[in-house]
């Protein structure tokens, strides 16, 4: 079993209303030198969190105690840029289990799904409602119901459904990963490999 099962998540959320948040912002390249998957959370949004002398930038949202939770809400085109899974690891390691945006970059989304972070794509309107709800009350709760594929703003009850590939959904709810699946069909893969032209 590769990671925790994902079922229903109820949590407050951290808003990051910036578009095109790229992987170099999520985790700058100079923090990719690990040979194990530990400690990436400390460097999440490193250059937005800290000045060059390592003092915290007090105006950045992650340094503001008012906001906390297991849900990160980002602007459109979240996760563009590199294929580094370290970006998803940093988000997971920091304590987020779900990222909400109106649009995700492809590889980033895949990487999230592969490591147990749920990417929830909502409409631009719903995203605005989420940002407004947090602005009105930073402690407001959201529910992310993976089995029902529904995200709701708890106090108002407003909700929207989201899409997820059924196979990926089953994996997330069971905490399985793709490698478990592939290892189970190794014999078929071997047979296939014999006839490839290259």
């Amino acid at each position: 079993m590769a990671y925790d099962k994902f079922d229903i998540l109820k949590s407050t959320a951290v808003p990051l209303p910036i578009e095109n948040v790229d992987t170099d912002q999520i985790i700058p390249a100079r923090f990719l030198k690990a040979t194990e998957r530990v400690g990436f959370g400390e460097n999440l949004f490193r250059d937005w969190c800290y000045n060059s002398d390592n003092s915290p930038k007090t105006d950045f949202i992650l340094n503001n105690d008012t906001y906390s939770g297991k849900i990160l809400v980002g602007g459109k085109n979240f996760g563009s840029g590199s294929s580094r899974e370290h970006a998803a690891w940093a988000i997971y390691d920091y304590g987020f289990r779900c990222v909400v945006s109106s649009f995700f970059a492809d590889i980033f989304k895949n990487n999230c799904l592969n490591i147990g972070v749920l990417p929830v794509q909502v409409s631009p309107e719903f995203l605005q409602q989420i940002f407004s709800a947090i602005e009105a009350n930073p402690k407001c709760f959201f529910s992310i119901d993976l089995p029902k594929q529904k995200i709701s703003i708890d106090y108002s009850g407003i909700s929207e459904s989201f899409h997820i590939n059924p196979y990926k959904k089953a994996n997330m709810t069971n905490g399985f990963d793709d490698i478990d699946y592939l290892l189970n069909i190794k014999r078929e893969i071997k047979k296939f490999a014999q006839d490839t032209p290259l």
């Binding site: 294929s83 580094r84 899974e85 895949n110 592969n114 490698i179 290892l183 190794k186 893969i189």
Partner: peptide, 18 residues
Amino acid sequence: FGIGTSEVEMVLSTQCIL
């Protein structure tokens, strides 16, 4: 195309990705 590290593991172990 580019892949993440979990997928690197998939390819090393099974020569396939999903």
